[in-house]
């Protein structure tokens, strides 16, 4: 059954509706150091999906009893602006944003040398300003650059992109129609130096073999993203 607003096909003549190839991600641009008030920040666009990330801290933990005398903690708040979606999105935390904030913090924590920052909180805030699928992956990519920009000691950056399936075809970096009407979505966060996965979620339906293929596709894309993150950080301090 074709739902209202649903395109008849997601893949036409071997191309996706926005003209991309199956393993092609949308254009990515990253700029570090966009919020001077924050210790570190980054603005990132992934096609039409746009996010801004800021890092405050290490700073005193509030409430105090959450402080760990042996190491720092990472707090993550993902929010979506009310104008970021076709229908006005009610401001404030939703169940969805609370979950994404949680898995984002867990995706970023493994690369941060938290033992250097006892009793403190490193607070990561990400605002999605324009949403066209892939907001959590965009948010993680931006947050990782913002953390590095903040001069936080880390052992790696974190890269993130989704794989998925539409019209039976495995694809990289879903945009809205593919996210809404495709068969599966598999967002991943990948640590480029160690090759480990620090965020993994999935919905839809995939065979284990398809998951294996997607992970390969995602890994390759994440290595590309890593280069862009590095460039953004270097650009920030490049000689003018």
């Amino acid at each position: 059954m074709v739902k209202k607003g649903q395109p008849e096909k997601l893949i036409v003549k071997g191309k996706r509706l926005d003209g991309r190839g199956f393993d092609q991600m949308r254009d990515v641009s990253i700029k570090a150091g966009v919020i001077p008030e924050a210790e570190g920040s980054a603005e990132l666009s992934l096609g039409e999906t746009k996010v801004i990330a800021a890092v405050y801290g290490p700073r005193e933990v509030i409430p105090k009893h959450l402080a760990n005398p042996e190491k720092g903690i990472i707090k993550c708040v993902y929010t979506m602006a009310s104008f970021a979606t076709p229908d006005r999105n009610r401001p404030g935390p939703s169940r969805r944003s609370v979950e994404i904030s949680k898995v984002m913090a867990e995706a970023l924590t493994p690369v941060v040398n938290l033992e250097k920052y006892p009793k403190t909180s490193i607070d990561v805030f990400v605002e999605v300003t324009n949403a066209n699928a892939g907001t959590r992956t965009a948010a993680i990519n931006a947050a990782s650059v913002a953390l590095a920009d903040a001069g936080i000691e880390m052992n790696d950056l974190v890269t993130s992109i989704a794989g998925g399936k539409a019209d039976g075809q495995l694809i990289l970096d879903l945009f809205n129609p593919e996210d809404n009407y495709g068969e599966a979505d598999l967002p991943i966060a990948y640590l480029p130096r160690t090759g480990e996965v620090s965020l993994l979620q999935m919905d839809g339906e995939l065979t284990p073999a398809e998951i294996e293929k997607l992970l390969k596709m995602i890994k390759k894309a994440c290595e590309e993203l890593y280069k862009k993150q590095k460039n953004a950080l270097r650009e920030r301090y490049k000689l003018k």
Partner: peptide, 26 residues
């Protein structure tokens, strides 16, 4: 040998360190 912070490379003989470009005072 890997960097653990955003910064400038400082090579001193066999020792490689990184001078930070940003970050809170500890």
């Amino acid at each position: 040998i890997c960097a653990s912070i955003l910064g400038l490379v400082n090579i001193n003989g066999r020792v490689i360190s990184v001078i930070p470009l940003s970050g809170a005072y500890m």
